[in-house]
Design a protein around this nucleic acid. Structure first.
Lengths: 201, 201, 201, 201
DNA sequence: AATGAATGAGACTTCATTCAT
DNA sequence: AATGAATGAAGTCTCATTCAT
């Protein structure tokens, strides 16, 4: 029995367009990502683009959603074994972050740079949510004796701190700092912070 | 000896234009800051604008430089007495950061949001430099027994972590977190991090 | 003898499309009547639409022809008895006009508004022709003693005067005039005009 | 003392653009009147067009206002002497109407054809108002013994009847009727109508 | 025959920058 | 020096029509 070709083709066109958008952002930067350039990169007419996405924004939003889901999947694949220490966990997550930002030829980097003009909320929330769950699971499992207070706020601070420190680092042409050092620094900072007891407010 | 009126006028014109740019960014946001609006706010013609600044970018760069110098001056005014603990110092700096981002009707906030499209380097570098010096002085003075390793990298991480966590917090319409909690969290994180010894790489 | 199914289907498809066009014009107005919307309303593909009509214009022309024939049929059903006065006749016709323009949810109103961009000629001519015949019959029957001069021109004037006065009246959101008053006014005007002898040119 | 050249130039540009709009409508018809064509006809860049008119609609509205004021001025110049009969008055007005619709190479004709898509209200109201005043003055002066009832409604009917009968006549390629005959017919109709007493409602 | 995805010309509008006055 | 009118490339989006399946 044949698969439904319509939806197949639709799905493919949608993916092609989102992919073209990604490539355009990578090649030209978000500021020079235009609907006609996207269509051109997709080897498709502008009209087609608008048959599948009601606006440039919708297209970028779709890309962001893909991104959110990618990141989510990646996070779930992070290895957490019984012998994982908190340091292992944090190191893994930080590493994952750098991998992400350097992946796809800097696509995520450029999106992160422009977070304010983009429908970032979904991605950011997803990210925070994922880390929150990850942390909860971890702390419930292995740190029952050290319940973390204010976990949400801490995750918020850590996630944002990490992302933007990374983005800034990678964005610098000739950085004065080695990626390795910053990576280690972030790990230390996060670990130190997580092991802190909240002071009485 | 007469003052050189030309340069006086120039200086004044330049300041007026930079100020108009700031007001425009505050009122309309960076995306809707156009050269003609700037000129209009400065009560000056667009032509004049281009007599003093070769491009919109140049104008914004000047604004950024002013900003950098403002921030520098502010930092130098941070009170550090002999009795200041490290916590006092960090608390003061974080507070200063929030004050800055909320000052000038959100001008710095908007600029920080759009850092990637702006000539941020100078500001960021200035900021980092200032904090570096501040820290050096502090640690040399009171912590001679605890020499901080990798101070530059740590400052880089801390400054970026702080700025963007704050920006993200302030940018959220109805934030899920109280400013106070985030402020405290940042302070704890930074303090914990600074008191960490670098692990052997 | 079997009916020819092809032609049956054709006829039905054609009618469906014309009907969809009418519905689209009613719902969206002529300016927002697009081929794809028509096809959608007809539960048919755009491609099929073009199998039956060579262009959007052809489709609308067909609708106009249907309209002409509808109006013609309606006019023939206007009651003219032996005891009808001229006033009865005119009143009936004016009433018919208003009924028409308000019928089909304003379809004819919208078409009349846009007469210039449409192949109006057929409809207008049909209308004029019908009224001409109606008048001829009437005057021949009952007014033999008052032969109307220049009947064609008079009908032309009356028909156009009536249609557009009505269209303008109905199109006004909050008309300053009651429909009843305009209706009576038109009747008076037409009656007065028909009872006029042509002055020597 | 020099005239203010700015306003001079502005005024001239505005007039040029409105004039170009008029020419474009005349040459291409309203449907093919585009902002770039207008700019081209005005020997001006599109940008300039938008410096003076915020949108295509604004430009067309300005043209309509000019039209309204032209028509108003023309009406005020209609000769009404003491010896004018009602027939003289009506004849003059009808004549004026035909002159108008034929003037400016059919500009007003095309605008009248497209009344429904245009900001017609101002023009139509102006026209009705002018005729109303004209009629009031006339009837007050010379027909005190025959006060016209429902003058407003009558004027509404007459103005619309006249305009569209004319527009339809002129729009026909090879009209079946001589302009003279229709003109006379309209005059007779209007005169007959105005001399009618309103029937009790 | 039917489908509907694809096309692409063309519409409106913005804004950094220039240049005649 | 100052002005601000003029420029025009570039951007987003629509829709009648075609054509491969």
């Amino acid at each position: 029995m044949r698969k439904t070709p319509k939806q197949e083709r639709s799905r493919q066109m949608i993916d092609t367009l989102i992919d073209a958008t990604a490539r355009c952002i990578i090649e030209k930067g978000l500021d020079f990502t235009t609907t006609s350039r996207i269509a051109e990169l997709a080897n498709v007419s502008v009209g087609s683009l608008y048959q599948y996405f009601s606006s440039k924004e919708a297209l970028i939003e779709a890309l962001m959603n893909n991104m959110a889901s990618d990141i989510g999947k990646g996070l779930q694949r992070l290895p957490i074994s019984e012998t994982s220490t908190l340091r292992d966990l944090v190191t893994g997550a930080i590493h994952y972050g750098f991998t992400m930002l350097n992946s796809r030829n800097g696509l995520y980097l450029e999106l992160a740079r422009n977070w304010h003009r983009l429908p970032t909320d979904k991605v950011a929330n997803a990210l925070q949510q994922h880390f929150l769950e990850l942390s909860r699971i971890y702390f419930l499992k292995y740190y029952r004796e050290y319940p973390i207070e204010n976990l949400e706020v801490r995750i918020f601070i850590i996630v944002n701190s990490t992302i933007f420190t990374m983005v800034r680092l990678i964005s610098q042409e000739n950085s004065m700092w080695r990626e390795e050092d910053v990576e280690n620094g972030l790990i230390e900072m996060i670990l130190a912070y997580l092991q802190t007891k909240t002071t009485a407010a």
